[in-house]
C-alpha cells in the first residue's frame, strides 16, 4: 500500500489501476460535454466550411426536419408511422428467429445426435450474412412483409442458435454430476441444469441479435420497401435529401439503444443470480 501511494505521488497511474473512481454524475457530465462539443463543431463546420456545408446538413436542419415530419408525412406516412413499420418487422422476424434459434441451439448443444443431424446444413447456412438472403427472400416471399420477416428471422436464428449451443455445451460437468448425485433423471438434467445454466448465454444471443436486427432491417428496407426507417434513408438518398438520411439514421439508432436497454433490464431481472453484489 505504502509503495503504491509513493508511486501515485510521482506520476498519474494508468486508468485501470487508478484508485480514484469516476462517479456516475461525473461521467454523465463528461458524456454531455463531449456530445455538446461534437454538435457545436458539426454546426460550425456546416456554417463555415463551404465544401462540407454544401453536402452535409447541420444538426439544426436535422432536428428541424425531424420535428416537422412528426406531423407532416414523408411519402405516405409520418415519422412515427414509419418507425412503427420498422419495429413491427423487427419484432415479428426477431421473435420467430429467436424461438427457432434457441430451440435448435439447445438441441444441438445438448444432444450429439441432434447436432450430427443438424450441423451439416447449419454450418453451410451459418456464415451467409442475413443481407445476402435479400435476393433469395424476395424470390421466395415476394416484395412484401414476409421476406423482411425472413431476413430478420434468419439473422436472429443464427446468432441465437450459436449462443444457445455455446451455453448448453458450457454447462458445468460438475453441476450435472451434482444433479445426478441428487437423483435427477436425464430429462431433468436438461430442464433443471442445462437450460437454466444456459440462460445467460441465451440472453447474450438475444441481445446481440436484437442489435443486428436493427441493422439488417435497415438494409432490407433500403433494398426494397415502401415505408420504414430504412425507406426514409433510401428516399433521402434518391432525392438528394441528406437531412432525411440523417433523420432516418438517428431514429433507427435511438430505437436500437432503447431496445437494447429494455432487453438489458429484462436480462438483469431474469438472471440476477449471475450478477454479483446487491
Amino acid at each position: 500500500m505504502a509503495t503504491s501511494n509513493n508511486i501515485k505521488k510521482k506520476k498519474t497511474k494508468p486508468a485501470i489501476i487508478s484508485e480514484d473512481q469516476i462517479t456516475k454524475k461525473q461521467s454523465t457530465l463528461y458524456a454531455f460535454i463531449s456530445f455538446a462539443v461534437v454538435v457545436v463543431l458539426w454546426q460550425l463546420a456546416v456554417l463555415f466550411l463551404p465544401n462540407f456545408g454544401n453536402i452535409f446538413p447541420g444538426p439544426y436542419d436535422v432536428v428541424a426536419l425531424m420535428i416537422k415530419i412528426v406531423k407532416e408525412p414523408v411519402g405516405r406516412l409520418t415519422l412515427f408511422a414509419h418507425l412503427g413499420w420498422t419495429l413491427k418487422r423487427i419484432f415479428i422476424g426477431y421473435i420467430i428467429g429467436a424461438v427457432i434459434g434457441v430451440i435448435t441451439g439447445l438441441a444441438m448443444g445438448t444432444s450429439k445426435l441432434a447436432n450430427a443431424i443438424i450441423s451439416p446444413v447449419f454450418e453451410i447456412l451459418r456464415p451467409i450474412p442475413a443481407i445476402a438472403w435479400v435476393p433469395m427472400a424476395i424470390l421466395w416471399f415476394g416484395l412484401g412483409e414476409a421476406s423482411k420477416y425472413f431476413i430478420i428471422g434468419f439473422s436472429t436464428f443464427v446468432i441465437c442458435a450459436l449462443n444457445s449451443i455455446a451455453g448448453a455445451r458450457a454447462t458445468s460437468e460438475k453441476l450435472k454430476g451434482a444433479a445426478r448425485m441428487l437423483g435427477a433423471s436425464e430429462r431433468q438434467l436438461f430442464s433443471k441444469i442445462i437450460l437454466p445454466s444456459s440462460v445467460p448465454q441465451i440472453f447474450a444471443g438475444l441481445q446481440i441479435s436484437l442489435s443486428a436486427s436493427c441493422s439488417t432491417i435497415l438494409a432490407a428496407e433500403m433494398v426494397r420497401s415502401e415505408e420504414g426507417a430504412g425507406w426514409l434513408i433510401l428516399r433521402g438518398m434518391n432525392t438528394g435529401n441528406m437531412t432525411l438520411v440523417l433523420v432516418g439514421l438517428i431514429v433507427i439508432s435511438v430505437t436500437g439503444l432503447i431496445l437494447a436497454t429494455v432487453m438489458r433490464a429484462i436480462e438483469r431481472k431474469a438472471i440476477s443470480w449471475s450478477f454479483r453484489g446487491k
Binding site: 486508468a15 442489435s211 436493427c214 436500437g256
Partner: peptide
C-alpha cells in the same frame, strides 16, 4: 476515455448499414 467514449458510443449505435448513404 471520458471524452471519446460518449462519441464512440453514439457512433456505434448507428446500425452498420446506415453508413452506406453517408
Amino acid at each position: 476515455d471520458m471524452f471519446i467514449r460518449p462519441v464512440f458510443d453514439w457512433f456505434r449505435s448507428v446500425p452498420g448499414m446506415g453508413w452506406i448513404p453517408v
